[in-house]
Nucleic acid binder design. Structure first.
Length: 473
RNA sequence: GUAGAUAUAGCUCAGCUGGUUAGAGCGUCGGAUUGUGAUUCCGAAGGUCGUGGGUUCGAGCCCCAUUAUUUACCCCA
């Protein structure tokens, strides 16, 4: 006999867990649909040509590749084996498991460009797979819930993302959250500010190294970031000015102004609208998002934070970027997203702007569990269990069973004529709130006894009035 | 890929410097109640101590290896 097991980083979900997960999905789905997003599903498998190169080198390594069917080794030569796995891969695998929902969506848009009505708004709730080392809040198979819009530059989309995030988290009663927002342009401007002045800082074109290090500021502090930048070839005098740039404080609006003043002081060339404090496009756009939110009646500006250090790993983002954390739980981000100007470009459809974001259902689940916020605990949807004693009473219960179901009350008849004690234990263990007792006495008198499990109270009703009495409650 | 921790009953875990027959709680099953759950009482079943080797008169405990799980780093939902 072998011990059964499931792959690392995957989970089974029992009935109680599924019920709680469905609750999360329902809150998200209702929110997405109320904002006009329509559902889309794409295959679990994508061609590797679609997936590779979209997530950076690290991302490519985390892709699950699927071995070709049949004799997958038939094209492999001895030479391939000596060159190594890189040369071997395209010969043995042409498909992979989807890594996120955004790239398959971009692929879908490019393939169906002729039939879609733009701007195209879709939501998608499906599992994705990453060959990561599992740890807290990190799984190899997990569900994402994405909502994206393609075909418009409007910053209303960004504002609505913030609205949806707040609506979902409030709907889940996870009200202690922080939505961090930044703009890739801000990061670019910061990078430029380091070069705009006279000092030489090291090799140019290493923007990503700067962003990655910057993103860790709140985790490893100034010293840690400085150390990491020096290791990556930036010179010492760069970091001082970097931290000067980041010393912004006050309201969302004030931070934008301070950063604009810093860029001008450092001689960063304006790329924006040219009206005073908004002559940097990134700052202008962030301010626009803020104004649109205010006009939409957004209630949670205390939970929206402009964070110029926020970077996010995925390399395809070009505009606003978001990240959401639950403050009172030790957990990675539960949601993230941003604008990508040219995601469909690599699929032959250039110049289409998209913006979207994603919820990590599994992390939301972990947060809700850590905060003990689940209200759904039932092991079964059954509301009513009919007990019986022998074949005759069991048979006599069937019309009532059908009647209950027709009335929309999920019901079941205990399948065996076991001891009543056993039937009651079954109802209790599964959290079934009502038990109908239908023994020979009840059948003879054309009545049933109904017990409300929570209170322990019982009453006797004529069999014809059962459904009516239960539907009133 | 790098580093650490853990592995004992279905689950969560005790188990003394290495010493007879490895324990508890919860859960399961049976009974107290031949027509009543959760509460109470009584009883029972359930363990090659992850696996393989070594040290020892003697190993759940010490040593080595191996596998699995898990935490952190990198990165990320």
């Amino acid at each position: 006999m072998q011990k059964p097991s499931i792959p690392k980083g995957t989970r089974d979900f029992g009935p109680a867990q599924v019920a709680r997960r469905q609750h999360i999905f329902n809150v998200i789905r209702r929110t997405f649909e109320s904002f006009g997003f329509a559902p889309l599903e794409t295959p679990t498998l994508e061609n590797l040509s679609v997936l590779t190169g979209k997530y950076g080198d690290e991302g490519d390594q985390l892709l699950f590749k699927v071995l070709n069917s049949g004799d997958f080794a038939k094209d492999v030569t001895a030479a391939d084996l000596t060159v190594g796995s890189k040369a071997l891969l395209p010969k043995v695998a042409e498909k992979g498991l989807r890594y996120d929902l955004t790239v398959p969506f971009a692929r879908y848009v490019a393939m169906n460009r002729g039939t879609l009505t733009f701007p195209f708004k879709r939501y998608q709730m499906q599992p994705v797979w990453r060959a990561d080392r599992p740890q807290r809040g990190r799984y190899r198979e997990f569900y994402q819930c994405d909502a994206d819009v393609v075909g418009t530059d409007s910053l209303l989309c960004e504002a609505e993302i913030v609205l949806m995030i707040a609506q979902v988290l409030n709907g889940l009663r996870l009200d202690k959250f922080t939505i961090k927002i930044n703009h890739r342009g801000v990061l670019r401007n910061i990078y430029e500010s380091l070069y705009a002045a006279d000092s030489y800082l090291g090799e140019k074109g290493r923007e990503n190294d700067l962003f990655v290090a910057l993103d860790k500021l709140d985790k490893i502090g100034k010293d840690g970031v400085t150390k990491e930048l020096l290791e990556r070839g930036f010179f010492g005098n760069a970091t001082d000015r970097l931290f000067e740039a980041l010393e912004v404080s006050g309201s969302f609006e004030e931070k934008l102004k301070q950063l604009g003043a810093f860029f001008r002081k450092e001689g960063v060339v304006p790329d924006g609208m040219g009206d005073g404090s908004e002559d940097y496009r990134s700052l202008f756009e962030l301010n626009q998002v803020r104004e649109l939110l205010a006009a939409s009646g957004f209630q949670h500006f205390d939970r929206l934070e402009f964070d110029p250090t926020l970077a996010r790993g995925l390399s395809y983002y070009t505009g606003c970027i978001f990240e959401v954390k639950i403050n009172n739980v030790q957990m990675g981000s539960v949601s993230g997203g941003g604008r990508y100007d040219n995601l469909t470009g690599s699929f032959g459809l250039p110049g289409v702007s998209g913006v979207g974001f994603s919820f990590g259902v599994d992390r939301l689940y972990d947060c809700l569990e850590a905060l003990d916020l689940f209200t759904v605990t039932a092991e079964t949807p059954t509301r009513c269990l009919i007990t019986h004693f022998d074949q005759a009473s069991g048979r006599a219960a069937l019309p009532l069973l059908a009647e209950l179901r027709a009335a929309g009350i999920p019901s079941e008849l205990y399948p065996d004529a076991s001891k009543l004690q056993k039937q009651f234990k079954y109802a209790d263990a599964k959290g079934i709130p009502l038990v109908v007792i239908m023994g020979p006495e009840e059948v003879a008198a054309r009545v049933v006894k109904i017990k409300i499990m929570a209170s322990g109270t019982e009453r006797v009703l004529p069999i014809g009035e059962v459904v009516k009495a239960l539907t009133v409650e």
